[in-house]
Simulated scan of single mutants.
Amino acid sequence: MTAFSLEPAQTAWCEELRTLGERQLRPLAEKGDPGHVNRPLIAALGEAGLLDRMLDSGALDLCLLRESLARGCTEAETALALQGLGSHPLVRSGTPALRARWLPEVRAGRAVAAFALSEPGAGSDAAALALKAEREAGADTGAGTGPDAAAGPDAEPDGRGWRLTGEKCWISNAPEADFYTVFARTAPGTGSRGITAFLVPADRPGLTGTALDMLSPHPIGALEFDGVPVTADDVLGVPDRGFRVAMETLNLFRPSVGAFAVGMARAALDAAVEHTAARTAFGGVLKDLQAVSHQVAEMATRTEAARLLVYAAAAAYDAGEPGVPGRAAMAKLYATETAQYVVDTAVQLHGARALRRGHLLEHLYREVRAPRIYEGASEVQRTIIAKELYASREASA
């Protein structure tokens, strides 16, 4: 398999996923309450084995999952992706006890996970996190024992836990998740090196949340931490090294955000081809108008270019190649910007019918805007790409 083509078995699997999304998952999604966690839908993802596959997959498999589900049911795709985003730090850096407690529940679709990184004053700038984790006396807090654990002064037990104080905002699945991967500042004034990742169950005292009324149909909320207690048993990885946990997660999921965008673009392109091939206007079929057919050709070309960029970034991640952050940023940037263009053009070609509530394109038009912002806005991706380019130049000079 290359980054530019799929094996027949992979293509068949993608079609199976698309069909599953359309026929079995979309009816469950339509019964859900917009802005709230759809637990029957998540349970169905677990029953179908997709959550299991997602947690055990590499970047390419994750991209295939997200793209194919997005073509058939964007709500199912988003529910799966949010489970992965919230759980990947646990898979990669959790202690054996945390994994045993939570991962079987996530795989079965019984526990809802959330990735709590963003704050009112620290969205894409993760190094500016202000949520405080202040040391307290009296708790037994041995060192983190996940795979990232390493010998060093920050990893030594000192018999104290932490209290989390502050807020998180724009957190998907909040405030309805069962646990949160929370990134907090344990060492003031140290930038990205003073952040620790914690797994915080939703029932911890002092943790409250409110739902936010957002454009996207999936749940998004804010969290308030009023002295929420955590110990070293809750640490993911090593104290003061949580920024690495966050970046490892984002480097994996950024190309797959691009895959989600490609899936939406392909759904919009399918709809545009179908509509323009059948719709008559001005004495002929729309597809016979050069102004229309050229737009459809442009939509298809940009979508295919985005797909190839996403797969190339995913293959590079799986192969452990250098430059993954830059390639992941390119994939997310180009695919999400392309999806916005393709969906918008498809709406224009359909006319007013595409703006009716319940139309596929009306739904995609609302869905497609957010991926250009979350997990690093387009401007952040351009910054990452530029830094990688100049760093490469300096290294070779």
Results as ranks from 00 to 15, higher is better:
331 A>Y: 09
3 A>D: 14
280 T>F: 01
333 L>H: 13
207 L>S: 07
343 V>I: 11
369 R>S: 10
157 P>R: 12
25 L>Q: 04
217 P>R: 00
237 G>D: 08
145 T>D: 15
227 G>E: 02
185 R>V: 10
42 I>A: 08
46 G>K: 05
210 T>W: 00
149 A>Q: 01
255 P>G: 09
376 G>D: 08
238 V>F: 04
288 D>A: 13
206 G>E: 03
283 G>C: 05
189 G>K: 03
364 L>F: 07
116 A>V: 04
360 L>E: 06
82 L>K: 13
318 D>V: 01
239 P>H: 05
68 S>G: 04
290 Q>I: 13
30 E>N: 08
362 E>G: 14
101 R>N: 01
175 P>D: 01
229 P>W: 01
4 F>E: 13
268 A>Y: 00
353 R>G: 00
92 R>T: 14
145 T>S: 14
181 T>R: 02
360 L>R: 05
169 C>Y: 11
164 L>P: 08
359 H>Q: 01
315 A>D: 14
316 A>R: 15
256 S>T: 15
346 A>G: 12
87 S>L: 04
65 L>Q: 03
207 L>Q: 05
302 R>G: 04
366 R>K: 12
226 D>S: 14
151 A>I: 10
172 S>A: 15
58 G>Y: 09
203 D>Y: 02
72 G>Q: 01
325 P>I: 02
332 K>Q: 12
258 G>H: 09
97 A>C: 02
69 L>T: 02
169 C>G: 09
277 A>P: 02
121 G>N: 14
75 E>T: 10
370 A>Y: 14
119 E>S: 06
282 F>Y: 12
78 T>R: 11
385 I>R: 11
60 L>T: 13
215 L>H: 08
53 R>K: 15
154 D>H: 12
276 T>R: 00
32 G>V: 06
83 Q>F: 02
154 D>L: 09
74 T>L: 10
208 T>N: 06
361 L>N: 05
237 G>A: 07
280 T>L: 06
376 G>I: 07
79 A>I: 03
200 V>Q: 06
146 G>T: 02
50 L>D: 11
336 T>P: 03
225 F>V: 02
30 E>M: 09
203 D>T: 12
89 P>Y: 05
277 A>D: 15
140 D>W: 11
316 A>W: 00
83 Q>P: 06
116 A>I: 07
322 P>A: 04
192 S>A: 15
145 T>W: 02
246 A>Y: 09
100 A>K: 12
20 L>K: 05
28 L>S: 04
120 P>E: 13
314 A>Q: 04
167 E>V: 14
353 R>K: 13
382 R>F: 09
144 G>L: 07
344 D>M: 09
107 R>K: 13
366 R>M: 08
178 D>I: 11
18 R>L: 05
34 P>Y: 04
59 A>T: 07
